[in-house]
Design a protein around this nucleic acid. Sequence first.
DNA 1: CTGAAAGCGCTTACAG
DNA 2: CTGAAAGCGCTTACAG
Lengths: 360, 360
Amino acid sequence: MSGPKKSRPSSGRATVKTISESAGVAASTVSRALRGDPRISQETRERIAKIAHSAGYTPNALAAGLVTRRSGVIGLVVGRLENPFYAELIERLHEVLAARGKRAMVLHVGGTALDEETMRAVLKYQMDGCVIAAAPLDSTAAAICDQAGLPMVMINRVARVHSSAVSCDNQAGGRRLGELLIGGGHRRIAFVAGRADTSTSEQRMRGLGEALATAGLSRFAMVRGSYSYDSGFSAARNLVSGTIRPDAIFAANDIMACGVIDALRTLEIAVPDEISVVGFDDIRPARWASYRLTTIAQPMERMVDRALDLLDQRLGDPSLPGEDVQIPGALKIRDSARLPSGMARDAGEEMPATAIVPAD
Amino acid sequence: MSGPKKSRPSSGRATVKTISESAGVAASTVSRALRGDPRISQETRERIAKIAHSAGYTPNALAAGLVTRRSGVIGLVVGRLENPFYAELIERLHEVLAARGKRAMVLHVGGTALDEETMRAVLKYQMDGCVIAAAPLDSTAAAICDQAGLPMVMINRVARVHSSAVSCDNQAGGRRLGELLIGGGHRRIAFVAGRADTSTSEQRMRGLGEALATAGLSRFAMVRGSYSYDSGFSAARNLVSGTIRPDAIFAANDIMACGVIDALRTLEIAVPDEISVVGFDDIRPARWASYRLTTIAQPMERMVDRALDLLDQRLGDPSLPGEDVQIPGALKIRDSARLPSGMARDAGEEMPATAIVPAD
DNA sequence: CTGAAAGCGCTTACAG
DNA sequence: CTGAAAGCGCTTACAG
């Protein structure tokens, strides 16, 4: 029958309890008032809000999350930040999450495989879901989220079991670039692929293949890179080392295209006069004067918005099936590729959502 | 005298309680065993570990954090990710944090000012501290962390009240680059500054000033940029528009230096034959064939390690005073600057920790 | 070496 | 419209 134990020295911060005391109401009333529960009278709500504000009250998300099983935290898995595409993605993702009152917690960065240990942080912090934006296909993340019943959305890759996915229409984009090159008079179009375990590279290449087939052509060559600048650089050196050179190089992403252009520059091969180069993504350096890359811009903003919508919906109703969303990209015409006659550079045209059927 | 209320449907996950039941011990014993408390017998510890593992137990960090007032989360404020320096920093920071069993939560990204609302997330999620790596000086973050008694460390900027800071020895680096340029025969050295409210730009410029003064020279010109590619590009156009041109341009960071080089390339001014260019940071693109930038490499790995050490120490003992750590950078000699005769490119020499006193 | 109990700061049925 | 109470899943004095 000992007295109450002494509580640990508190941080001195205001809590629902301290506020309820100064307001002369119950803690539950404070909680409801602060969350805008309409059952609490307007007057009480305002009074409590005022007190909370002047006490510098900040709710403890850990305590709230413990009860609600919602932390307001989204886990983030992104590819190597050497690729500015992922850096831009983080920036945008953070912005949209913040606007929605949520926060991003970094789970994994880089090209290495996800281990289970890493994904456990999702459970540990009761995350509300995760966004996977690393190109390599990997199922550890899917397995953990699925087991925890957590929504998960892929960006820039295809969906896996029980996940949604948002990506650019890579195939249409690849086709569009293929058509542009063919229209520009190129006949020996080589492809610098990304890692073999990525859907984006495959889809972009398939689009190129379609354009080639329609024109009665076939791919001149294919070299596999790893989505890095260096791999684009080496790939280009390989491609031009033979006796017959390609007259155009389509790199599966922009950062490799930058490597391609630099390799050609080093070899004093003129771009686009001798060899045209196109990429995919529209990363910042694609606009730099050294590259002026003709490419497909991924609709980053819409992709992120859409991805977080999918996540939100599935957090509300976990039984919702996964969706696979494709958003058309936009062709950016700059200076790295010879154009069909009559087509102006910088005419940045929006890609149509549906397949382009060349008018014979 | 009603019966116990029904608890909300639990997630079905294992908890200390479910484990304590299957092990036939108290919850407190499970907690201690799992945390490796030496008071629990080896045998019991192992038995509990086994049960926990086979139950797929993952501790709930929210619950633990609520009690311990430690969340294992570090808040991150970084500058605009257009600058690969910050992207690399995130990558490295995440890596080291993960190795220490902690996680990074993104607080703010970009060049805009920190608002109080953002920094409140630090309190909301009971973060263990934060890392501020945005160049602009801003005191909101410092104020919030200080009020909460949280440790905070700046990377790439000077300390503020109650914070520690880790940065490259910017002044020595600036001096080193200045000496290199002067030794290479340059006499009209212009500086492209970063934002006025940043310490890094000022320190690098001061270092350059010292080198110039020692050689009896003064700065040829100064143009202010904003640490972006575009601002470097415009700055270079301004600098060469007059009748007397600089023979060297020192940009306060690499991304501006890339813009400078591209502007000169566009104007068909040869680098380094007509104008030498140097930068600071050693970001990835500095190594790209289009730039081959002579620059000072910031010791990113050591900076991050040191910063997190400082944070850890202050989390253990909040009374510790702030420290200001400067780590020497390393000169990277590439192709963007003419060299003193006899000095080889790529000789990447380590910068000395102490000031260089030129031997008359 | 282990257990029973209190409590971290919230939220939410339940009752009125 | 509001309150009292239970509980989320941990950890940690306290007691033995």
